[in-house]
């Protein structure tokens, strides 16, 4: 079994499932992301990056949410499953 690696939501490739951690910085956007359900311990799945590279789409509590990579970088993640989410 692999040890969980510490990364941020921004760097996750598409089709990766992970558990988000607490945001590292505070901003109105981050506050709203928390309120949209991106709270510590929540499982998310990075679905894809937009065709021009930014923003990213994540699957969160059954809803599809887009956020810019700059905002996603504030959230640390613990990876659960890479590449197998859609299998």
């Amino acid at each position: 079994m692999r040890a969980p690696t510490l990364r941020t939501l921004e760097t996750l490739p598409a089709r990766t499932r992970a558990i988000v951690g607490a945001p590292a910085i505070s901003s109105p956007v981050i506050a709203r992301l928390l309120e949209l359900g991106l709270t510590p311990g929540t499982p998310v799945e990075v679905v894809r990056r937009a065709p021009f590279g930014d923003p990213i789409e994540i699957l969160l509590r059954g809803t599809r949410l887009c956020l810019r990579r700059a905002d996603a970088a504030a959230f640390g993640v613990v990876e659960v499953d890479e590449g197998g989410a859609l299998s």
């Binding site: 109105p28 923003p55 809803t63 599809r64 887009c66 956020l67 810019r68």
Partner: peptide
């Protein structure tokens, strides 16, 4: 403007 977009 920040992007907080839901894809319904």
């Amino acid at each position: 403007p920040p992007l907080l977009l839901e894809l319904p």
